[in-house]
């Protein structure tokens, strides 16, 4: 049972999804639901004995359409509505032992095309307002299935963080007459201390305002505001800088590096020009601050929304810049 409950104190929706309490939790290898279905084997989510990339609706979705009626009656103070939307799982490799960073560049390019296709497909549904593409990687993040995969949440509203970014960039543009992200890119390219890597279409930085020690933002250098705006060269450039970034993460301490990867873009059913004050970008939130210490979201972060970073972006950016792409 899932529903959207309105929080009037923060003016935001909360999704309750009680059926997710019993979702699949680290199944044994023979019962991997994201593997291909082999002859005589356990029937997985993918009814074929091999695949390249498959995308399917989550078996334990937080959002679905049509959505069931809420379990509780709304009040004027605390509305509750059906949790309409779409939750998808993207399986981009049939190999449960690998990860995105280890895939050939070609395979990551193909994934970028799939992301763009999902944006286009889900945007066509009138109840969808925002496409959120992301990946949770690592037990430390709370992943319950170790087979490498990403997800898409197609929300029926613009989520709070996206809304803050869109509004902030609009206000900046109205005040300064320029694009906030373009100005950030120019500053970082000129400064260099927080630069991790760059190509003609993207820049990867540890932002000046990084909240996590090894937080990286990959920002489009061209005026694109959604993944569907990327042309073929742009998609390939995105795949390249993604592979560089996540490979360096793994090579930092010679082990698989957990992170949350999120894609921030304009709302769907909008035009690029409508949001030309904004810029398509991807953010990484890795939880480790040292090889053996996690950064926890404690009182200041969770209760006040004020992050405390134990490092300086200039230091961690230099570390990542000096980390090889391959070993």
């Amino acid at each position: 049972m899932s529903e959207l409950r309105w929080n009037p104190t923060l003016e935001e929706w909360v999704i309750t999804a009680t059926h997710r309490q019993d979702r699949t939790f680290f199944p044994p290898p023979d019962y991997n639901p994201l593997a291909p279905t082999l002859p005589g084997g356990f029937p997985t989510e993918i009814p074929a004995n091999d695949y390249e990339i498959v995308v399917f609706e989550n078996k334990f979705p937080s959002l679905r359409y049509p959505a069931p009626e809420p379990s509780i009656d709304p009040t004027g103070l605390e509305p509750v509505v059906p949790s309409e939307g779409v939750c998808e799982v993207i399986c981009y490799t049939p190999d449960p032992t690998t990860e995105l960073a280890n895939l050939p560049l070609r395979k990551i390019e193909e994934l970028v095309y799939v992301w763009a296709d999902r944006f286009e497909e889900l945007s066509s549904r009138e109840y969808v307002k925002y496409i959120f593409i992301f990946e949770n990687k690592g037990k430390e993040i709370g992943v319950t299935l170790s087979h490498p995969h990403g997800q898409i949440y197609a929300y029926p509203f613009i989520p709070p963080i996206a809304e803050r970014e869109l509004n902030a960039s609009r206000r900046y543009s109205e005040k300064n007459g320029s694009n906030l992200y373009e100005d950030i890119i120019q500053q970082e390219m000129n400064d260099g201390r927080r630069l991790v890597s760059a190509n003609d279409h993207f820049i990867a930085i540890v932002p000046f305002y990084a909240r996590y020690p090894f937080e990286v933002h990959i920002i489009a250098r061209q005026p694109v505001t959604a993944i569907v705006d990327l042309d073929d060269v742009g998609k390939i450039a995105l795949a390249s800088i993604l592979k560089t970034t996540i490979s360096r993460y793994n090579n930092l301490w010679d082990r698989s590096f957990p992170y949350i990867m999120v894609m921030h873009q304009r709302p769907c059913n909008s035009s690029a020009s409508e949001y030309d004050h904004y810029r398509f970008h991807i953010e990484f939130y890795p939880p480790y601050r040292t090889p053996d210490k996690l950064k926890f979201l404690a009182g200041s972060e969770a209760g006040a929304g004020v992050y405390i970073n134990d490092t300086h972006a200039e230091v961690t950016a230099e570390t990542l810049r000096n980390t090889p792409d391959s070993r």
């Binding site: 990339i53 609706e57 193909e110």
Partner: peptide, 11 residues
């Protein structure tokens, strides 16, 4: 539930 198979002809 809907499932989409993506097939890349060249790879």
């Amino acid at each position: 539930r809907e499932l989409t198979y993506y097939h890349f002809l060249d790879s």
